[in-house]
Design a protein around this nucleic acid. Sequence first.
DNA 1: CTGAAAGCGCTAACAG
DNA 2: CTGTTAGCGCTTTCAG
Lengths: 356, 356
Amino acid sequence: MATDSDGGRREVTVSDVARAARVSKATAARALGSYGAVSDDVRGRVQHAAEVLGYRPNALAKSMNTGKSNTIGVIIGDIENPFFAQATRGVSDVVRAAGFDLILSNSDEEADAESAAIDVLLDKRVDGFIVSPASSFETQSLQTVRSAGRPIVLLDRSNDALGADTVIADNRFGAVAATRMLLDAGHRRIAFLSTIAHDGPFAAGEVVGSSSVADRIAGFTESLAEAGIEQPENFVRLNARRDGIDVLTRQALQGEEPVTAFLASDSLVGLAIFRTIRDLGLSIPGDVSLIVFDDADWTSITSPPITVVSQPIYELGAEAARMLLARIAGAPAGWQRKVLSQKLIERGSVAPPRER
Amino acid sequence: MATDSDGGRREVTVSDVARAARVSKATAARALGSYGAVSDDVRGRVQHAAEVLGYRPNALAKSMNTGKSNTIGVIIGDIENPFFAQATRGVSDVVRAAGFDLILSNSDEEADAESAAIDVLLDKRVDGFIVSPASSFETQSLQTVRSAGRPIVLLDRSNDALGADTVIADNRFGAVAATRMLLDAGHRRIAFLSTIAHDGPFAAGEVVGSSSVADRIAGFTESLAEAGIEQPENFVRLNARRDGIDVLTRQALQGEEPVTAFLASDSLVGLAIFRTIRDLGLSIPGDVSLIVFDDADWTSITSPPITVVSQPIYELGAEAARMLLARIAGAPAGWQRKVLSQKLIERGSVAPPRER
DNA sequence: CTGAAAGCGCTAACAG
DNA sequence: CTGTTAGCGCTTTCAG
């Protein structure tokens, strides 16, 4: 009575319940799965029997028949990155409310890992995907999902060539706002740093793997150009993960034409830049100004607090999830693209450049 | 040729492949699943046919037969909390290397949500669980897992009553080291703050929901007692999430007997305390000293940088995963408990209390 | 409303 | 080495 079962013995199935309740397997299944119609009397007997026997529905068997696993795949760069953690939480909350679970995969921003993850999840018959694609070139994996006929929504990175549901922030706007603020303060040499991978130094017109970063770069360089600055693309520094954020920061600060301000493409980069500037014995904003993308919790407690470009990260994930659920529920075709707004939060890390 | 299929048409199965390769279903399955023995000739034909048809194995069907889903359930408080994010990454990396996926659930530290998540995952037939239990009292859900005969390992929280595989850090050691450092600096009134839920003010001998916090409290109060401080339990402030970390911090600082130092039970609490102290116009460590659990990235860039108790969070997760995999592989019974060490990292947030 | 029977896609004996 | 035959646990016609 108390402990229904404990060892690794055979699981109790609908058949067992049916037998105990003296009804057919089909009827028991109907009562248990609450589909079809069953008399109250029978339903009662079945449910009672199920409880007594400690019946647990086998979701796998159910999925095999129905074709729906009530599970979605989420593929992001790295759950340790607060951006992804927050977005994932947004996804999780809305899909869970709809009765879905979430299988999480970290791609480390590598197309191969992403592809492998997608294959596995496709085999597991997840009902849909939310992915933050590692690259906008190697869209192999996304094609795979599409040809498998599973819905997918892109998070924080769009892919116009592919044409897919997308939820993204207005990165260009944020970049323009931040860059202009720096420009208005009098800065003329500003470095934009991102960890995005890129072959060689960034040149005007080149495409980068992440559309978000691309938009930020666009907003950044265009604002510089508007201000009459030549070859603004020279101020774009990518590959910060591979080359080291600290290394790039030092280079930018110690070259012949040292920059007087930084725009960090995410909070992790921002933190590293902040630390390096400090290590160099320079002060913010006295010697160097800094604006960081994402309003991470630490940005408000440093001295000085950091001026940031804030975006609704949790909502980005939540919205992506809503979009995916709609597709799973069979929303009509036609790609949708939702862009959430960013805003500049002024704090204390921007000041006029020091005279030299 | 290029696009194998796109619409939502019927999936291709082993039968289809078998027919195309002119062999029996069983043979095709053997070739595809690489079990049993098949001649090279046949294997080639089958694999070719599979490729042409765009065959994707159905992992659900496979799981139903084998009884293994190659998926584990991970239930934590909140993936947005950097502690859990890091630990989860550790789990993810090791289970993935072994070919397992991970279904993630946030419990928000609520036993009900935890229980519900476990039920669902049990139904989905996950091969095992890694959970950071919301409460050491309401062990209902853990019992459920056990009676279902699925392996489970507890992360960062042990439960002696239940007796289960556990991976945890030496919290008592960390708390003692931190408290002594504060005591040695001359502090006599030190507040320990945690978000753990607890009914009413903490009294000596009471049990709290998280064994980690319990161990920290023990190390803290015992160190105070050793130093001759009366009723050290009065310095323990719980329920910080419900009551507000800032509120508790202010209370501790503004009462009749204001504390001169804080020990924060995790980095989120530490950040909030730091902010509140600043907002109050007090300086660290001049007016108030602070030590926080977990070497979060921001702790090294504040002014002053924060003295912390560091623990190998990623490794906590990784080790839990290894333990679980061993169980899944059928490791002999007998609960195992692995405790990883913590260490105190001195930075600049501790100084003698200001004379009054 | 209920039962019988077929089948989801795959693995697992068991013969040849 | 290969084919046949059963299932895994559940849903789903199709009759009654």
